[in-house]
Amino acid sequence: MSMSNQGFETLAIHAGQEPDPSTGAVVPPIYATSTYKQDGIGGLRNGYEYSRSGNPTRTALEECLAAVEGGRRGMAFASGLAAEDTVLRTLCRPGSHVVIPNDAYGGTYRLFARVYEEWGVEYTPVPLQDVAAVRAAIRPETVAVWVETPTNPLLNIADIAALAQVAHTAGAKLIVDNTFASSYLQQPLSLGADIVVHSTTKYMGGHSDVVGGALVTADAELGERLAYNQNAMGAVCGPFDAFLTLRGIKTLGVRMDRHCANAERIADLLTRHPKVASVLYPGLPEHPGHEVAAKQMKRFGGMISFRMRSEEEAVRVCEATQLFTLGESLGGVESLIEHPGRMTHASAAGSPLEVPADLVRLSVGIEDVNDLIADLETALD
């Protein structure tokens, strides 16, 4: 049976992870080495010469990333932003233009607004759920449409297949940040995306103990260009980080099932709570992106945002929880709460991407859901 025909959980546990031929170890070892003995000048064993260019632990992770995303080439980086930077430097030149979400992750916005804009790369923030608005924003210089779905932190949903058609008609690439959904819930390459980006720090690693990023593509030639720049720019994932991320991916399916189940219960609680003004969760039938999310996602994820009736109320709730830890990041086994306006999205303050001051974001963990509900009820009251 070929690997490509196997189910997600099987690929997550076995792709790139054959037992070690010399010892039979079932887990790929941490190859803590910077260089490799060559069998004569230019005689590389399995292509390894220097660990920036390639490391067997990282190779195992990269093969697994490609398999679980349904791609041909996976690349592992030191962080999600290192992966994003490599994409942009591969596709963009001075004068290039990129369409981005009008509620993009703050770090992505900062990369465009504070780094790439200085090098002559232009960008237009657009509500990606409005396909006509995306089409209208495209120019002759547009090289890519950058998609987050669900978005961070407003949980808007973009129709990947529709946007792929718009981008490709214009000769542009469709890049999808799949961090919030994870490979388990959403497969952008199968919907027409050219490149998938992950902060593997989040659901892929899943235990809040490693920082990393990934790129996956189904296009072999594009994969070669990205991999060349990965090596040339050098922001690669180290072997211990690769080991931890690979270990996390093995349980991604079972973890996401629990994240989703817990989030559904909590979204229901928040929807009914009198102090909550509105709940942003694509699993709710009243969410404007619900139908698209149901079409392109397996379930609706573990991220929930909600609005209180004032900034003061939002801050108070964030500081009142006991089980939900006040902290940035997301996607770990433990539940987190944060105030995006003052924390993860502070870099977007005063910009077109500024988030509402009364917004609270939850990363719902895999604890006992009744304990999580009790904690939120106490904090809200």
Rank of each mutant, 00 (worst) to 15 (best):
R139Y: 07
G47D: 15
A113F: 05
D130N: 09
A104E: 08
A60S: 10
A60N: 10
V68I: 14
A113D: 13
G74L: 03
W146F: 14
P56W: 02
A60V: 13
P94W: 02
N102R: 06
A132W: 02
A83M: 00
T59C: 06
G107D: 06
P140F: 08
R52T: 15
Y105A: 10
V143M: 05
Y50G: 14
E49D: 13
A104Y: 05
G107E: 09
L81Q: 01
E148G: 09
N156H: 12
Y50P: 12
R139T: 11
V68G: 11
V121R: 00
R58V: 14
A67G: 12
N102P: 15
E69N: 11
P94A: 04
T149L: 01
T59N: 05
R110F: 09
N152K: 03
L88Y: 10
Q165P: 06
T57E: 14
A144Q: 03
Y105S: 09
A137D: 10
H97M: 04
V99G: 15
P94C: 02
R114G: 08
E122N: 11
N102M: 07
Y109S: 01
V98G: 05
V131L: 06
C92P: 04
R135F: 03
P153S: 01
Y116Q: 02
T124R: 12
H97R: 01
I138D: 08
R89H: 13
Y50C: 11
E118V: 13
V126T: 08
L155R: 12
P153K: 00
A133K: 00
P56D: 07
Y50V: 14
T151Q: 07
V145Q: 05
F77T: 05
E117L: 06
Y105W: 13
A144V: 03
L65V: 04
G106F: 04
T124L: 04
P101N: 00
S53Y: 12
T108G: 09
H97K: 00
E122P: 10
A133G: 08
D130W: 08
R89P: 15
R139A: 06
V99T: 11
L163A: 06
S51N: 10
W119P: 08
L128C: 06
V121A: 06
A66N: 02
A66C: 15
E49R: 11
P94T: 01
E49F: 15
V115L: 04
P56N: 08
Y116T: 01
E84D: 14
A60L: 15
L91E: 08
E122G: 11
A144H: 05
S96T: 01
G54T: 09
L155P: 09
E49K: 12
R73L: 15
Q129G: 14
A137N: 07
W146R: 00
Y123L: 07
P101K: 00
